[in-house]
């Protein structure tokens, strides 16, 4: 049986890579490798996972330099030979080993007005939204985000400007901006416009390239840029 040489980040913000040798198995995922290390080689290794099938978004890490879901990444797809380097997500404070503090990431969803603001009560009739309407199509394009943080970890603008809201929060804002039932779009546009929001995006499209759900936050951010400019010209920003 061949072995895999794995370098895993140990420590917090300060730390170093530790080397492990892990048996190489067929159809092995990166999460399998991390789990093997914790169960058989070093029980003090910290990492996050839950569903193991790409639904929960908790196991994202930087594997060989790229942020990915470890549960849906086969070792064979990311290794050159028999070595792996596994690090915590970038652009987030490291708590320990492969675990990051996701607070900034989710606080920015809230700052981008990522909450639904209803315009009706439970006593009103159901809202009717045509599946083929342009607004609903825009919502469909972005609604499957599970908040894994891969885009946020991959975004250069976040690394240059810690205040920048990031791709996921603005993708969420865009889906709500297109939700015809929502009543807080003026506040939302004010929250996502400007230097710390959509207008700071450089359209590098790394978020779009690396999103495991094939969502395009870049398209959402471009939509927000246009909507915010329209609002500004109408004096509503």
């Amino acid at each position: 049986m061949s072995t895999l040489e794995v370098k895993v980040w140990r420590g917090g913000e300060e730390g170093e890579f530790q080397r492990f040798e892990v048996p190489r198995l067929e159809s092995q995922t990166v999460l399998d490798v991390v789990t093997h290390i914790q169960r058989h080689l070093d029980p003090t290794l910290s990492y996050r996972f839950a569903c193991r099938v790409g639904m929960c978004g908790s196991c994202a890490m930087v594997v060989n330099g790229r942020a990915r879901w470890t549960c849906r990444t086969h070792v064979a797809d990311v290794t050159d030979g028999d070595s792996l380097e596994i690090a915590p997500l970038k652009n987030l404070p490291v708590i320990k080993d492969l675990v990051t503090d996701m607070r900034d990431f989710f606080d920015k969803w809230a700052a981008a007005q990522g909450q639904f603001h209803p315009t009706t009560t439970r006593k009103d009739d159901f809202a009717r939204v045509e599946p083929e309407s342009p607004e609903r199509q825009q919502v469909d394009a972005g609604i499957e985000c599970i908040g894994c943080g891969v885009c946020y970890s991959s975004c250069d603008v976040v690394s240059w400007n810690p205040e920048y809201l990031g791709p996921a929060a603005m993708n969420r804002a865009w889906t709500l901006l297109n939700d015809v039932r929502d009543g807080a779009n003026e506040e939302r546009l004010a929250a996502v416009a400007g230097d710390a929001g959509c207008h700071a995006c450089h359209t590098h499209m790394t978020c779009t390239e690396r999103c495991p759900k094939q969502i395009s936050p870049t398209a959402a951010i471009a939509g927000l840029k246009r909507a915010a400019l329209k609002a500004a010209l109408k004096g509503k920003l």
Binding site: A193, D195, H199
Partner: peptide
């Protein structure tokens, strides 16, 4: 600088 001014800078 106001958010609106930042948006106008982007547009400019």
């Amino acid at each position: 600088m106001s958010t609106r001014s930042q948006v106008y800078l982007w547009a400019a």
